[in-house]
Design a protein around this nucleic acid. Structure first.
Lengths: 196, 196
DNA sequence: TCCTGACTTGACACCATGTAAAGTTGACAT
DNA sequence: ATGTCAACTTTACATGGTGTCAAGTCAGGA
C-alpha cells in the first residue's frame, strides 16, 4: 500500500474519472484515457488487466477519495428512525452526483460484462444494507407502515434511491440536487412511515 | 403496407424479439439474429440499414402487435382522475414486461448511439404524456396535492414508472408483476393525491 | 558498470459491424 | 422456352476498439 511517487496508477485513475465525469465523453476508450494521463495505451494494461477492471478500480478509488463509507456510516448515529432515514437519504443522495460519471459507464456495460455487473451489484448491495438499517430503525420506533414487512420496505426504498431515478429527475427533468434530495425524503416518508 | 408473403422482414423482427426476450441473450449479435431467422447475415442489411435501426424497428413492431397506444388511450376514458391514474398505471405497468427485452437492448446502447437515445426518448415522451394527462385529470378533480405543480407531479410519476424501477423490483427483488402494479398504484396515490 | 523495473513503441490477433460484388434461384411476363 | 427482375446467398474485405506480445529505452540503485 505504499503510494508515494508521482504514481502512474493514480494518474490513470484520475484521468479515467475526469473523462467519465465530462458527460460529453459518450464512450471513453482506453486510448482516450491514456492520452489524458499522458501515458501510452499499453501502460494501462500494466496496471489493470482490462477496461472493466480499470472502471471498477476507478469506482473504488472514488469511494476512497470521497470516503462514502464513512459518510453512510455517519447516518447510523441518528437517534430516531426518522432522523436516520433522512440522514441516509441525504448522505447517499448527495454522493450520487459525485460518482455518476463512473457509475453510468459501469451501468452501460452491465449486459455485456459479468464482471461489471458483479462490481455494480456489490456497490448497490452496500446501499441496500443502508436502506435495510434505516427501515429497521423505523420499525423499532413502531413507525413502519404495518402493511409493509421489512423486506418489501427495503426493496422500495432501495429502488427509490437508485441512480437511474436521480438521473431522470436531475439530468432529464432538470431538478436541482436539493429538490431531488428533498423529494426523496418526502417520498420515502410517504412510502414507509405511518401516521403519529 | 402489403404484408402477405412469408415475409423475411417479419421473420427477422420476430427473431430479434425472441432473442432479446430470452434474457440469457446478454448481447445479441447480428449473426445471432440471422441464424435465428434462418437467413444470411447480409439479408438483415437488405431490410435494415444497421443494428440500431433494426432494434428500433423491433420496438415499433412490438408496439404494433401489442397495440400499446390503444391500450394507453383506453385509460383516458376513465371518469375520475383517480380511476384514470389507476388505469394508466395498469396499462403501462403491464406493458413493460412485454417490451422489456427490447427496451433493455435499446437502453444499453443509449450512450453510444444517438439514434438509440432518440428512439427511446421518443417512446418515453409518449409515456410522459400519459402521466401528464393523468396528473391533469387529478388536478381538475382537485385531488392533486397542493404543494405540487403539474410539472413536478408529472416528473415524479414519470420517474416512478420508469422501466428501470420495474426491473429492479421484479427482476432484482423478485416481486410478482401484480405486486409491482399494486405497489405503483399505491405509491402514485401517496405521492400525488391529497386527502378527502 | 550493470541490472532491474517502469514505461514506450510497433506489430498483430480477435471480434463485431458494416460494405461491396458476384452468384443463385424462383416467379412471372411475353 | 426464354429473359428478366427481385430477393437472397456467398465470399471477401474495411473499420475500429480491445487485448497480447516482444523488443527497445531509460533512470536509479547495488
Amino acid at each position: 500500500m505504499s503510494r508515494n511517487k508521482p504514481d502512474t496508477r493514480t494518474k490513470i485513475l484520475e484521468s479515467t474519472w475526469r473523462l467519465l465525469e465530462s458527460t460529453t465523453g459518450d464512450d471513453v476508450r482506453m486510448s482516450d484515457i491514456a492520452k489524458e494521463a499522458g501515458v501510452s495505451r499499453q501502460a494501462l494494461y500494466l496496471h489493470f488487466p482490462n477496461r472493466v477492471d480499470l472502471l471498477i478500480a476507478t469506482t473504488r478509488y472514488l469511494d476512497e477519495v470521497k470516503n462514502i463509507d464513512a459518510r453512510l456510516a455517519a447516518s447510523r448515529s441518528a437517534t430516531t428512525g426518522l432522523a436516520r432515514l433522512d440522514a441516509f437519504i441525504e448522505a447517499w443522495g448527495n454522493h450520487i452526483p459525485e460518482i455518476f460519471g463512473v457509475a453510468a459507464a459501469l451501468l452501460a456495460m452491465q449486459d455485456k460484462d459479468p464482471a461489471a455487473k458483479e462490481a455494480w451489484s456489490d456497490r448497490m448491495q452496500a446501499v441496500r444494507e443502508g436502506c435495510e438499517a434505516a427501515v429497521k430503525a423505523l420499525d423499532q420506533d413502531g413507525r413502519l407502515r404495518p402493511e409493509l414487512d421489512a423486506d418489501k420496505a427495503t426493496d422500495l426504498l432501495w429502488t427509490l434511491l437508485m441512480v437511474h431515478n436521480w438521473r431522470q429527475l436531475t439530468v432529464a427533468c432538470g431538478w436541482t440536487q436539493e429538490a431531488y434530495v428533498d423529494a426523496m425524503k418526502t417520498l420515502a416518508r410517504r412510502m414507509l412511515v405511518c401516521e403519529t
